[in-house]
């Protein structure tokens, strides 16, 4: 069978589908000071599965932690229009479980173009393989 670390090189999704791959990628992002990217990506996935009674509070927490402060990597990466869309959603009584989907897509695109290829060339990944 193909070793997991070779699968990680197939796509970002293959990497993030694997626990060891996710942990190693997160360690790499920590070294670069941008682990918020992957934390936010998983927070968006988790948000979709969160029960409705917790959704309003969680949306505010995600918004405050990653988006409202413009100096963070997530906030700097996602588009202004996406940020205003989320800001408008957060205050509504009934939250759309997909309200972070566009932001998640933008963060994913950034990781695919930037941090994921760098990870595959990193000492951390090469040492692991």
């Amino acid at each position: 069978p193909t070793p997991p670390y070779l699968k990680w090189a197939e796509s970002l999704h293959s990497l993030l589908d694997d626990q060891d791959g996710t942990n190693l990628f997160r360690s790499f992002l920590c070294q670069e000071g941008c682990e918020d990217l992957v934390d936010f990506w998983f927070a968006c996935s988790g948000f979709r599965q969160t029960s409705q009674d917790k959704r309003a509070k969680l949306a505010k927490v995600i918004y405050r932690k990653y988006i409202v402060d413009g100096s963070g990597i997530v906030s700097r990466t996602i588009k202004a229009a996406t940020k205003s869309f989320i800001r408008d959603c957060v205050g509504k009584p009934h939250l759309d479980p997909a309200m972070f989907e566009q932001a998640q897509t933008e963060i994913q695109a950034m990781m695919e173009e930037n941090t994921y290829p760098l990870f595959l060339k990193s000492d951390l990944y090469l040492e692991y393989t």
Binding site: P4, L16, Q19, Q49, L58, V61
Partner: peptide, 20 residues
Amino acid sequence: MDSEDDLLQKCITSAMPKQR
């Protein structure tokens, strides 16, 4: 860890892949 951090952490963890 306060409850907001806890809520966020649980949300992130719930979406992460489980051990093979």
